[in-house]
């Protein structure tokens, strides 16, 4: 059985990826419209406050899902959920930088065994260095039973 406290002590809060992004205007618009958005700041690229929706921000992914030396836990990772903190508007067509670290690791036991939850946090910055948003990805891995 994986030692969760050991994983936390070794991997939490250590940046393991930096990636540059630029959200395309057309892509931001498509995401807004396909989710039914009607507010002009999300649907009108000419609007003075045009910005990406939270769902668009949740789609940004780091170059790596886990630190390079993170142990193989055996199971297939599943997407357990996303969270987005919107601090400032994120403007499509501008350069962004995402810095990723593991924010939390925890386990839950059920009838089918133990599930390990890994929360990977990406902090999204503008080219100027301003912190715009934070996106959490919750990865769920069913622990491989010991034989």
């Amino acid at each position: 059985m994986v030692d969760i406290e050991d994983l936390k002590s070794r991997f939490l809060n250590l940046e393991f990826d930096r990636s540059d992004f630029e959200i395309g205007v057309e892509n931001a618009l498509t995401v807004a419209l396909r989710t039914g958005e009607t507010r002009p700041e999300f649907t009108d690229p000419e609007h003075a406050d045009f910005q990406a929706t939270p769902a668009m921000l949740a789609s940004l992914a780091s170059g790596r899902h886990l630190p390079i030396d993170f142990p193989n836990l055996g199971g297939i990772p599943m997407d357990g959920g996303k969270a987005v903190d919107c601090l400032r508007p994120v403007r499509p067509g501008t350069r962004l930088n995402g810095r990723t670290h593991l924010h939390d690791i925890y386990a839950k036991s059920g009838r089918s065994g133990r599930m390990i939850f890994i929360v990977s946090r990406m902090e999204i910055y503008a080219g100027s260095g301003e912190h715009l948003a934070t996106s959490d990805s919750r990865m769920v891995i069913r622990e491989k039973p010991e034989t």
Binding site: G36, T38, T53, A55, V84, C86
Partner: peptide
């Protein structure tokens, strides 16, 4: 998630989603 935030935006046209989980 996008459907849900759209519902919020329609409900509160001057509102801003600070966090969605």
């Amino acid at each position: 998630m996008g459907f849900l935030t759209t519902m919020i935006h329609r409900w509160a046209p001057a509102g801003r989603v600070e966090r969605v989980d």
